[in-house]
Amino acid sequence: MKTFNTMLKTELKLSLRGMDMVIFAVCMPIVVLVVLGIIYGDKPAFDGARYTFLEQSFGAIATIAICAGGVMGLPLVVSDYRSKQILKRLKVTPVKPWVILLVQVTIYGIYSIMSLISLFIVANTFFDFRMQGSMFQFILGWLLVMLSLFSIGMMVGGIAKNTKDAGVIASILYFPMLIFSGATVPYEAMPKVLQKVVDVLPLTQGIKILKSATLGLPLENVMLPIAILTILAVVCTGVTIRFFKWE
């Protein structure tokens, strides 16, 4: 525990020194929320809807930080620590090298929580946001999204040949998901054909779960997304454990 805490403190400091996660995981979601709030205000999502457009988008915005940490932050830091042989150095100490990976997962989890809390505060204070559904369901869904995206990131970082490859794969995963999954550009604003295409992105499925929880829609509608994300998390974790390269 002493090791974990000291590592967490130091790695968190290093991460803050880099600033990128503060920008992409904490500031950016707030900017998206504020922009959508200014454009749509507290207008209903569609004529006769009992919830606002912003409430419909809240779940999506809450995944921006998870996406940044999971498929951009994690792959880069894991492959970087392998190529710098930090994982290898830990192999000749009493501590197992996976501890530092756990520390990284915790750090990206912290960023995601910080983002979620700040979004709740801003949405509540300025845009009359109300959680229509169950908070408990929302949190569970949010954790599932985090679990599945982090497992993708860990897999990419763990098996990519080098930092450059990891960076390329991370970009291929991150930018399409950020733009097309509904996290920044609302899914509802997309043409039907495009919606069908972006449904293959894991984050699109995750956002459906969160949206449904926020708006209090029936759980049956999102059984498929829940199943998809669960399978994804299991498969990626399995691949990571089996094929992770320590050096």
Partner: peptide, 27 residues
């Protein structure tokens, strides 16, 4: 057992004191 490697194995922006502190926390 103490091991010194030929190549440097440290995080990009880590300070001397921090690297020592983390190393000490392993034991």
């Amino acid at each position: 057992v103490g091991v010194q490697f030929q190549e440097a194995n440290y995080q990009e922006n880590i300070r001397v004191g921090e690297l020592c502190q983390v190393t000490a926390s392993l034991y």
